[in-house]
């Protein structure tokens, strides 16, 4: 629940900013080793209504628009979805995910299904800013990296700089929602395609 995520021993600061965050305390479903590296949290203020942001995120097919490593998200039955993620070179990682909590306009939580090669879970919360600064959006994610070759590939995509990854994705979400487009310095459409 939203209350749990704010509990730290550091006063009023969010759990994701703790020196040693505990994923369970954040209401997440993955066991992490406790070194704190796998829990990533980030908050941004977005100058758009809460419901609009929730609806955009809830349609998980939109996620690849601002999460650059995600190739596609396909909606399955029963709140489940199939994720295809680009790996290094031509490798791909795939898993199924299910929504575990869904409060319209407020909160979406998800976790990978039991047989997923990459166990992960996360939640995104949408709150009205108390001081009139749009919607406060907080994303918290944990990953349990797989072993072996797959693990190495996974680490290359997500774990090298998970905080940077998270803040870039959330920044793109904000840019898209506030301005209706993603900024680019590209001069021509061809160049943009080459870069992507």
């Amino acid at each position: 629940m939203a209350e749990r995520i704010t509990q730290t021993r550091g006063g009023d600061a969010p759990l994701s900013s703790a020196n040693n965050p505990d994923a369970r305390a954040a209401g997440l479903d993955v066991d992490v080793d406790g070194d704190g590296d796998e829990l990533v949290g980030r908050t941004v203020s977005i100058n758009r209504p809460r419901q609009e942001l929730y609806e955009f995120w809830r349609d998980v097919r939109n996620l690849p628009l601002f999460m650059e490593n995600i190739e596609s998200v396909t909606v399955l039955e029963g709140g489940r979805s199939h994720w295809v993620v680009r790996g290094p070179a031509t490798t791909q990682l795939e898993w199924d995910s299910e929504i575990t909590e869904d409060l319209p306009g407020e909160l979406i939580a998800w976790r990978s299904t039991e047989d997923a090669s990459v166990r992960n879970s996360g939640r995104v919360e949408f709150r009205d800013s108390a001081n009139g600064r749009g919607t406060v959006v907080t994303v918290t994610v944990t990953y349990e990296p797989p072993a072996g070759k797959l693990g190495k590939a996974f680490a290359k995509i997500f774990r090298r700089e998970p905080k940077i990854q998270a803040r870039q994705e959330l920044r793109r979400f904000k840019q898209l929602m506030e301005t209706g487009e993603l900024p680019t310095a590209a001069m021509s459409l061809n160049a943009e395609i080459e870069e992507a």
Binding site: L189, A191, E192
Partner: peptide, 11 residues
């Protein structure tokens, strides 16, 4: 001499 710029985003 470089390529001419194009419209990329709608704004």
């Amino acid at each position: 001499t470089v390529p001419d710029p194009q419209i990329i985003n709608p704004r």
